[in-house]
């Protein structure tokens, strides 16, 4: 399949006796925004760093842009964009100097000033990187990640420290890059609203395994966190809200006064899923 940009099969990784990844499978398609969700310590960072080619010592099959990240060279690296969490590098450089320097590593970089303008950094361009505000610093990181026109972009918690407007701008930019230029994005985030807004598909990684993978709606369905059905005389948590509503209709012999059905949000589904997985793991552990 030529459209698969990242392909992972049976990926395992251990730090000493501790298994961090226990057989991960993933497929990312061209132009897709894919979110990796999971609690701290689930192995997200390790997984992403393996894909970026910064970790060796894993086993399984991993292909990013058709190559094994552990062995790929500079031509491959030039097609990757990386935005890591909480970067503090190059504090003495001026923002524009750093962006221009990074751009010069690539064959056909984006226009530096245009990119600064797109990310709202024109006024900060002459400032030293070390004195930028948290949000400006983060936007500069994003600019540094996409200045080389990558085919794959890794985003780790990209919008931490953004105000709502900057966040919306950023989401529009990512959507545009994925839609128009076929950029494939692997996003790691704790922000479920962001995941729901941006991504076609979401994978949930818990304790080194992908426990579910699909669209936000599929994720919610797969987990089946209970929906809440509420009406004038009572309320009920149920996995089958439609059935309950039908029963109520029959009981009332017509419209149900004050009927309200609330489906679980992605966040509820997600938290439910993590709890469930943890319980299973605990039961498995005591056996």
């Amino acid at each position: 399949m030529h459209d698969v940009v990242i392909r992972v099969r049976g990926l395992r990784m251990a730090y000493g006796p501790i298994q961090v990844l226990k057989g991960v499978d993933l497929d990312l398609r061209r132009g897709e925004v894919f979110t990796l969700l999971g609690p701290n310590g689930a192995g997200k960072t390790t997984l992403v760093e393996i894909l970026e080619g910064f970790r060796t010592g894993w086993s399984g099959e991993v292909e990013v842009l058709g190559e094994n990240p552990a062995r790929a060279g500079d031509a491959w690296r030039a097609r990757l964009g990386v935005v890591m969490q909480s970067w503090r590098d190059h504090p003495r450089w001026r923002a524009r100097d750093l962006l221009a320097h990074v751009a010069a590593h690539y064959e056909k970089p984006r226009d530096v000033d245009e990119l600064l303008a797109t990310l709202g950094l024109t006024e900060a361009a002459r400032n030293r990187v070390g004195v930028l505000s948290g949000g400006q610093r983060r936007r500069l990181d994003v600019a540094l990640g996409i200045v080389g026109r990558p085919d794959v972009l890794f985003l780790d918690e990209p919008t931490t420290g953004f105000d709502p407007e900057a966040r919306r701008e950023f989401h529009l930019l990512i959507e545009r890059l994925a839609g128009d230029e076929g950029l494939t994005v692997l996003l790691t985030t704790h922000d479920l609203a962001e995941a729901e807004r941006l991504s076609g598909r979401i994978a949930v990684l818990v304790a080194g395994r992908v426990v579910t993978c699909g669209s936000p709606a599929e994720l919610a369905r797969a987990v089946q966190a209970p929906s809440l059905v509420r009406w004038e005389d009572g309320e009920l948590e149920t996995a089958d809200p439609s059935g309950v509503a039908w029963d109520l209709h029959r009981r009332y012999g017509g419209p149900v006064p004050g009927l309200e059905i609330r489906r679980p949000t992605l966040e509820e589904s997600y938290l439910d899923l993590i709890d469930e997985t943890r319980e299973t793991a605990t039961v498995g552990g005591t056996r």
Partner: peptide, 17 residues
């Protein structure tokens, strides 16, 4: 110091960095 700040890591993310 560059390593502590992440400058070295940044270099690793760039081709020929």
């Amino acid at each position: 110091a560059d390593r502590e700040e992440g400058t070295l890591m940044r270099a690793r993310t760039l081709p020929r960095g």
